[in-house]
């Protein structure tokens, strides 16, 4: 029995953290919660994620960008959350971050 090859491309990633940043866990968690709630099927999720990962770089960060892209695609396609609505909310959060003094909680302005 030999030890894993430390230069081997797969084995050397063995100790990498599953999540590198909080948004990665949030994105995957939302997708799984939506599957459980029946917003879309596990099969549709796997198919959308499979398409998205092929468009991303082969890294943990790329994988979670694909998770986010697949999530946005399914929410838009199913009509649950249309893409323009996500874009508008993203801009609203960006404005909230930019205008909130450092140290204060970031809250969204009233949305119509």
């Amino acid at each position: 029995m030999s030890a894993p090859d430390p230069l081997a491309p797969l084995a050397r990633r063995d100790g990498d953290p599953v999540f590198e940043e909080a948004w990665q866990a949030q994105a995957l968690g939302m997708a799984d919660c939506l599957v459980r709630a029946g917003a879309f099927s596990a099969g549709d999720w796997a198919a959308a994620l499979g398409r998205a990962v092929r468009r991303e770089e082969d890294t943990t960060r790329g994988y979670y960008r694909a998770v986010l892209a697949a999530l946005e695609t399914l929410l838009d396609a199913g009509g649950a959350v249309p893409a323009p609505e996500i874009d508008a909310r993203r801009d609203a959060w960006a404005r909230a971050y930019e205008t909130t003094p450092h140290g204060d909680p970031v809250v969204l302005e009233e949305t119509p």
Binding site: W23, A27, M30, A37, R65, L68, A80, V81, Y97, E98
Partner: peptide
């Protein structure tokens, strides 16, 4: 002060899903 782009989009989606009662 702005979170990275994917974090911002995740925050946007999360707040919308919670408001709509989907999550």
């Amino acid at each position: 002060h702005l979170p990275p782009e994917p974090a911002l989009r995740v925050k946007a989606i999360e707040s919308l899903l919670v408001e709509k009662g989907l999550v």
